[in-house]
Amino acid sequence: MRPLTEDETKLVFEKLSKYIGENIRLLIDRPDGAYCFRLHRERIYYVSQDIMKRAASVSRKQLVSMGTCFGKLTKSMKFHLNITALDFLAPYAKYKVWVKPGSEQSFLYGNHILKSGLGRITENAGRYQGVVIYSMSDIPLGFGVAAKSTQECRHADPMTIVVFHQVDIGQYLRNEDTLL
């Protein structure tokens, strides 16, 4: 376990800012306690300082996880967000997409969202903008990338892909073993 280097921090922030933009500040400066980013076995954890200090006494091999795993750094130095980061992305998300109840399941099985399944979308979402996906009852389901801007969505064909699937809560079941 170690703090991130400058390059790694930049990588993580760049990815996070696609979904929550400036709100990363709220993750760093929290009024309810000191939280920090830590790297452990190529995974980035967002963890409170208290827990981090306690976890420091566990040896590297024994330590499985702590705090919230945000994602992992690949060997080619790219940052992949994990489903576990959803709890922190959803409240601060800048761009949201609501999925109709009928196509909720399809999304949770790992499929892209079609125009026919699109319930609502935040105004002014650009193309390839990172979006957080909600059910119509405002339960965060995952996140993805807007395949079309909000404007284009209006005139799109019902079968066109509107949001590319990236991560969904179905992965808690599907990728249980590799989630940590």
């Binding site: 319930g119 609502r120 979308i121």
Partner: peptide, 13 residues
């Protein structure tokens, strides 16, 4: 036919 859109507010939630 139109998707409903929502206006984004600063500060998220």
């Amino acid at each position: 036919a139109l998707p409903k859109t929502t206006k984004r507010k600063k500060g998220g939630n």
